[in-house]
Design a protein around this nucleic acid. Structure first.
Length: 770
DNA sequence: GAGCACTGC
């Protein structure tokens, strides 16, 4: 028997199990008392239906074609949210906005829309429920349509990109938050909706944050309009002959507005309740208790310098406990005892995987078999599926995951969570206009979310590989996306919706001022905005496309170069990451495969070659497999391509091919990416032509060894150095030719960062400030 | 000679 590897003791510092809220008094029916109460101007939907008591509700469930099984009816009643129904409905009737705080597993997302439907809210419009992720929108709507016994796509539907299962009859519409933003671009008042529920609001996705501002504005506008119409009615009434009351009624009926108030419901996990409530004029906060099993939390005594090593030790320690602890043994034998480890990225995951596999042969006898299962987004689907396979008896899975396992997917059978306390996060730096990807500490909210992954089915344990004081010093919640992203696209969307004064827009939390300015500048340079800061004709068209502004500009300008077809393909290819999945041990093979597609005219043309070949073999799975092509990525490319083609046709763009005259393609990209150009220096480094910053071609680029004199790149990411990704060679003379406004007739700037257009820009942004 | 976390339209 081999003794266990030298395990560092992880001190068994017990922490209050489970997620505990402070300062709230739970009410026995499962809802916690409404903390704040303040009647709001808007009224309940229709006085007749809203006053109906909740007990009459069960009748309406079976109205539709299919019969709802007794089982489903019982399941619905057993959900924690069920006992909260009355209080929920009353609050929604009384207030224009309600904040609902709930842990996982209360059934809020499936049930609350049904309650509101049964209470008559769908008589006046559609109830939208937004989700940050597509899969959630689709799967929840399926469940709800089953519960209501209706065909999916009829009364209950969903709407996500590339897939819309909703119809004129749809009353409950589950959709991604991004889809609702898109709808707002077509109908700025979202007039078909009577209730909009922002679910998972605590995640603070870019789109949810845009919706916060939009919905608040729309709600106010609708209420003002209603008040105004009521006032007009009253005036009308007093003018009328008081005796002819019949007549009077019909007149009012006629001018009665079709407009109805908008109810907003924010659903979130605990932490940001106050922020939301304050933003919505002290909207009431309701708490629904969840059903989470307790999770014991352990901290380390001291800081762990090497958290991958600490994770290794902890996993083995957990694994060996099984041998000497009868309680643990019987618990695990009954329910399972899989381990979930949170790491930051592929590299760490593969390192730890190797370390674990090396140790497995040396584990003592009597140990369960240890199955190592990596998962991260870029891993091909087939391999991802392995984490969901149930561990065979006498074995245990160790899942090594990125943040993908924090919210995006749920794995059953997890008893132990090992949390390294770090995450990779993309942050935009407006000063240099570049994203950087950094490993940073997670927030308390994130730590709790990770912990919760161990208590979904039974009691669990969470090993935090950091000290308790480290935890206490973490931020309460992660920095929302809107505060760490380039907002050029957000601005384009808002302007399309009619929000012209971006700085004056009532954001829940505003993006940093330098970011707003930089993004406005960028849009101005792209000619999406006029000198006055309004959307130009080009800008209006750009906003229509589900692309970042530089890409939509490229796409629209490629029409003039008669190569829209190629540009559409290339942009579709660039819209997904990792076309190639390169297994760790097959680098050499992959390099030779890549050469088949290589074009000296740049990565873009190389991707075009991949796409053409994929088309030629009709997407053959075998071909993909043999060429290390990620099938899921290519499927998405085709979807994006088809969607873009549809948009192009709708605005009557001429889709032409340039055959093999790729110079046209390269010139098209200049019209969108003229600011992303660099020149080779004698020392073999590149300097950006706009501000003389040192950059390097990323080694994954096909041009890494070739080093053309002048390059254009799609993105720059800072990791160890500033790396340009997706590179194509250009001629410097093309710059003034294609962008006379930006480069003018003066020589290409090489060494100074002055730029005449920036003066205009400063005036322009300060003009917008007012 | 480096290494992209995760979503969404």
């Amino acid at each position: 028997m081999v003794p266990p590897p030298s395990l560092k003791k992880i001190p068994q510092t017990k922490f209050t199990p489970n997620i505990v809220k402070k300062g709230v008094n739970k009410v026995s029916n499962g809802v916690e008392k409404v903390r704040k109460e303040r009647p709001q101007p808007s009224s309940s939907p229709s006085s007749t239906s809203s006053s109906s008591s909740s007990s009459s509700s069960s009748k309406t469930i079976v109205v539709e074609k299919k019969v709802v099984s007794e089982e489903i009816i019982q399941q619905k009643k057993a959900l924690p949210v069920f006992s909260a129904r009355k209080a929920l409905v009353e609050n929604v009737n009384k207030h224009s906005t309600v904040i609902i705080i709930s842990e996982t597993g209360t059934g809020k997302t499936t049930q609350i829309p049904q309650y509101l439907h049964e209470e008559g809210y769908t008589n006046k419009g559609v109830i939208a429920i937004t989700q940050p992720r597509r899969v959630a929108a689709v799967s929840i709507s399926k469940r709800v349509s089953d519960e209501m016994g209706v065909e999916l796509g009829q009364q209950v539907g969903y709407s996500v990109r590339f897939d819309d299962k909703s119809s004129k009859d749809t009353r409950l519409k589950y959709m991604t938050d991004g889809m609702l933003v898109r709808e707002a671009m077509l109908d700025a008042s979202l007039s078909k909706y009577s209730v909009i529920i922002l679910d998972e609001a605590h995640e603070r996705t870019l789109n949810t944050d845009i919706l916060f501002g939009l919905l608040k504005k729309i709600q106010k506008k609708r209420n003002d309009r209603i008040k105004q119409l009521e006032k007009e009615e009253q005036e009308e009434e007093t003018k009328q002959d008081p005796e002819s009351s019949n007549n009077n009624e019909t007149t009012i009926q006629k001018i009665k507005p079709k407009i109805s108030p908008l109810k907003i419901i924010i659903m979130s996990a605990t932490l940001d309740a106050e922020l939301f409530s304050n933003y919505f004029d002290n909207a009431p906060i309701l708490y629904i208790e969840g059903r989470q099993f307790p999770v014991q939390i352990y901290y380390t005594n001291e800081l762990q310098k090497d958290y991958v090593d600490a994770a290794l030790v902890t996993v083995l320690q957990i694994h060996l406990q099984y041998l000497n602890n009868e309680t643990i043994k019987s618990e695990e034998d009954e329910n399972g005892g899989d381990i979930l480890v949170f790491l930051t990225g592929r590299e760490e995951i593969e390192n730890l995987e190797k370390l674990l596999i090396d140790r497995i042969p040396r584990l003592p006898e009597g140990c369960k078999e240890l199955l190592v299962r990596p998962i991260f987004a870029a891993l091909p689907q087939e391999q991802q599926m392995k984490v969901f396979e149930k561990s065979p008896k006498g074995s245990r899975k160790v899942i090594l995951a990125t943040n993908i396992a924090e919210t995006s997917l749920t794995i059953n059978g997890i008893r132990y969570v090992v949390d390294t306390g770090v995450v990779k996060s993309k942050i935009y730096n407006p000063k240099i206009g570049i994203d950087s990807l950094n490993v940073i500490p997670i927030s308390k909210a994130s730590a709790r979310q990770r912990t919760g992954r161990a208590g979904r089915e039974f009691e669990g344990k969470c090993y935090r590989l950091y000290t308790q004081s480290t935890f206490e010093n973490m931020d309460d919640s992660s920095i929302p996306e809107i505060k760490r992203s380039n907002v050029a696209n957000v601005i384009l969307q808002l302007k399309t919706i009619g929000v012209h004064d971006i700085l004056g827009f009532d954001f829940l939390e505003r993006p940093p001022l330098p970011t707003i300015k930089k993004s406005l500048e960028q849009l101005y340079c792209l000619e999406a905005l006029t000198d006055q800061g309004n959307l130009s004709e080009l800008g209006k068209k750009m906003a229509m496309f589900p692309l970042d502004p530089m890409y939509s500009k490229t796409l629209l300008k490629s029409v003039e170069f008669n190569c829209l077809e190629e540009v559409l393909i290339i942009i579709s290819m660039l819209s997904v990451e990792s076309i190639f999945f390169i297994p760790k041990d097959k680098k050499q093979e992959v390099e030779s495969i890549k050469k088949i597609f290589f074009s000296p005219e740049g990565d873009h043309i190389t991707f075009l070659n991949v796409f053409r070949e994929y088309q030629r073999v009709k997407g053959s799975l075998e071909w993909c497999f043999n060429h290390f092509i990620n099938i899921k990525s290519m499927t998405k490319v085709i979807n994006v391509f088809e969607q873009l083609v549809k948009y192009c046709i709708s605005i009557k763009l001429k889709i032409e091919s340039c055959e093999n005259d790729f110079e046209k393609v390269r010139k098209s990209f200049i019209s969108g990416f003229f600011m992303n150009v660099a020149a080779l220096q004698p020392d073999k480094k590149y300097k950006t032509m706009v501000d003389s910053k040192e950059i390097h071609i990323h080694p994954t680029s096909f041009l890494f060894d070739i080093k053309p004199q002048y390059i254009l790149y799609n993105e720059l990411t800072i990791t160890t150095k500033a790396f340009a990704r997706n590179v194509l060679p250009i001629e410097p003379s093309w710059l003034p030719e294609i962008c006379p406004k930006y480069y003018g007739s003066r020589p290409i700037p090489q060494d100074q960062n002055s730029d005449s257009s920036l003066n205009t820009l400063n005036q322009f942004t300060s003009a917008d400030d007012n």
